[in-house]
Amino acid sequence: MKFVLNGESQETPDPLSVLDLLGRFDLGKRRVAVAINAEVVPKSRFAEIWIRDGDKVEVIHAVGGGA
């Protein structure tokens, strides 16, 4: 399965939930939010939403910024 994570192509042989994906990148304990194909994935559903072939996944966090 191929998908795009924060603009970079990724490939994995296994099915992957959002929770699995965050764990794989060591982001499980970080405060992040996730969108798949520009749709926000609620935190409460990270374990049950699966990445599908061709998905565009964005993982974001808060950074310093004013305007």
């Binding site: 982001l27 964005e58 974001i60 966090h61 808060a62 950074v63 310093g64 910024g65 305007a67």
Partner: peptide, 18 residues
């Protein structure tokens, strides 16, 4: 006010603003 940006997937250990 804070901005939201992509997490940098290569530098995992950097601290968080929050």
């Amino acid at each position: 006010t804070v901005a939201v940006r992509r997490v940098d997937l290569t530098t995992r250990s950097s601290g968080s603003l929050l």
